[in-house]
Amino acid sequence: MTQHPLISVKNLNVHIDGHHILKGVNINIPDKSVTSIIGPSGCGKTTLLKTFNRLLDDTANVKVSGSVLVSDEDIYAPDAEVTHIRKKMGLLSQRPYPLPMSIYDNVAYGPRIHGVRKKSELDAIVEKQLKDTSLWSEVKDRLHGPAAKLSIGQQQRLCLARGLAVEPEIILGDESTSALDPISTHKIEDLFVRLKEKYTIVLVTHILRQARRISDYIIFVYMGEIIEFGPTEEVLLNPREELTKQYVKGFIS
């Protein structure tokens, strides 16, 4: 691994309701690339993703120990500012959850919160992000219409635009295409590939073909432990571990 790691996880343990969900995770996620987390359902993929932007904070009975360094800053340090950490990462969830407001306000929501007040600035941000997510031509006539009226694929791209509007460094995707049709899925995948020039992208997916299509690196998680981590081709075609081999061949799911 020649690149400098952007996210560096050290001896991370997560307990939820007394269950040991993540067990001693150590991983370095490289900058400006797409990394996919794969593994059977319930193995802790999503939990791992959520520790990156501290979304587990509000869940009851969660204990997190160890450290997660993002750009060499420990996000679980006692003095870490959680809104600042989350701003650095855009989250794209399983299903699109547009905020209950207009398309424009969805994209402008983040910048407004972080203090952008000028209309011209907001206009520019909205236009740029909608263009970057190839939504602009589809929605430019109804920017002030409700976001909930968009198709589900458009909504997911809007959610991506919304996340990009706060200028994150990292995009986290939690099975972001699982609710979408093949065409919308393809559009989102294209976007990810295009965006990795500027962002570090971490995706949770259970579709191996998708992981193969778009990711540079793959993390295989099983029962809360990281079994294998490496470049996509190596992990999928030539796994070192027996468990990975079985999973890739479809023996465990």
């Binding site: 969830s93 905020l99 983040g110 919160i113």
Partner: peptide, 15 residues
């Protein structure tokens, strides 16, 4: 839905 709140939180909004 929790995901809706998560969406806002992950944009850096306070609770």
């Amino acid at each position: 839905p929790k995901e809706l709140k998560d969406a806002s939180l992950s944009l850096g909004a306070t609770k």
